[in-house]
């Protein structure tokens, strides 16, 4: 914390330059903690029921909180790219900063140290606030472990995206050199990375498959994440659930002369949460290292 509270050298300059943003970030974390605490107390005022206004508001609030936390990396990346890096290049203050005794490398490193420190502290604090609010609504509809927002904010994935955001901001800010354009471009890049990995994350681990006799109910085990389901022929071939030709029997299932032996359901058990988190975190941190190396390479090529 001494990095933030009593910085020296170029770090002092970075903290002083962005003092307003630092106070704003601290105030936002404090306000979110106060809000969640207040909603929990309101919920407590009517014990034993899920039908009171406090509970309803807490649910709505947590719904928004999940979405906002998904946008947190975009916000962090845009700030690093725009006000921290591109603005120096756009307004010309880099000519001042890069002709002082400290090297360009230290200049960029100081910005990144401050950004990473604030990002880590702030993100962990917000994840704590989210966990505090979520403890009341966990595993209810839209708040299960695999839900977008909840998944990211309750593991290591969100923090890794926020660190990637700092690195992407440092690179894009240098390449684009225009504050607003750099902010937008960073947001787009980070948004695309998140969308791609969100689409891929449930393919990291092989699904579990449950099979059962045809005609009986077959359900995803408790807390499992449904992936796919269908029918299985006598030769073991998988068939889609809508395979049965018309007409169906009175019970609405396939006629017995159609070749159906069983049915299956693919799912991820809740125990896949941490392995999936760690694989995704590893991918994002590897990307972060690559982007960071590129950012310093650009700096070296431009300013010796």
């Amino acid at each position: 914390m001494s990095t933030l509270l009593s910085p020296t050298g170029p770090r002092w300059v970075v903290v002083r330059q962005h003092r307003t943003a630092l106070w704003t970030a601290a105030a936002a974390v404090a306000a979110s903690a106060a809000l969640v605490t207040a909603l929990r107390m309101w919920d407590d005022a009517v014990p034993g029921t899920n039908q009171d206004n406090g509970y309803a508001l807490l649910r709505i609030g947590m719904d928004y909180a999940a979405m906002l936390l998904l946008a947190l990396p975009l916000l962090i990346g845009a700030f690093v790219a725009g006000p921290m890096v591109a603005r120096e290049l756009e307004s010309g203050t880099y000519k001042l900063a890069l002709t002082q005794s400290v090297t360009p490398r230290r200049w960029l490193a100081s910005k990144l140290v401050i950004a990473v420190t604030v990002t880590a502290v702030g993100t962990l604090a917000l994840m704590g606030v989210f966990a505090l609010g979520r403890s009341r609504v966990a595993n209810e509809y839209l708040f299960s472990w695999d839900e977008r927002g909840t998944y990211e904010a309750t593991g290591t994935v969100l923090l890794s995206y926020c660190l990637l955001a700092v690195a992407v901001g440092a690179l894009v800010g240098q390449l684009v050199r225009r504050t607003l354009v750099a902010m937008a471009a960073t947001g787009v890049v980070l948004g695309v990375v998140q969308l791609v990995l969100t689409a891929l994350r449930w393919d990291f681990l092989p699904v579990r498959t449950l099979t059962g006799p045809y005609g009986a109910d077959l359900l995803v085990p408790d807390e499992g994440l449904y992936m796919d389901s269908g029918l299985i022929s006598t030769s073991g071939q998988r068939l889609p659930g809508w395979y049965c030709p018309e007409p169906l029997t009175e019970n609405g299932i396939c006629r017995s002369d159609v070749d159906i032996a069983a049915q299956y359901i693919d799912y991820h058990p809740a125990s896949h949460f941490w392995p999936t988190q760690l694989i995704e975190t590893g991918i994002v941190l590897a990307l972060t290292a690559l982007v960071l190396a590129a950012a310093f390479k650009v700096l070296r090529a431009r300013h010796a």
């Binding site: 170029p10 002092w12 300059v13 002083r16 330059q17 203050t93 001042l96």
Partner: peptide, 20 residues
């Protein structure tokens, strides 16, 4: 080029911090 949000004093402090 100077940082517009810094005061004159802070700008000089910056000079001291960046040129130990």
């Amino acid at each position: 080029p100077l940082y517009p949000q810094l005061t004159v004093d802070e700008t000089l402090r910056m000079g001291a911090e960046l040129n130990p």
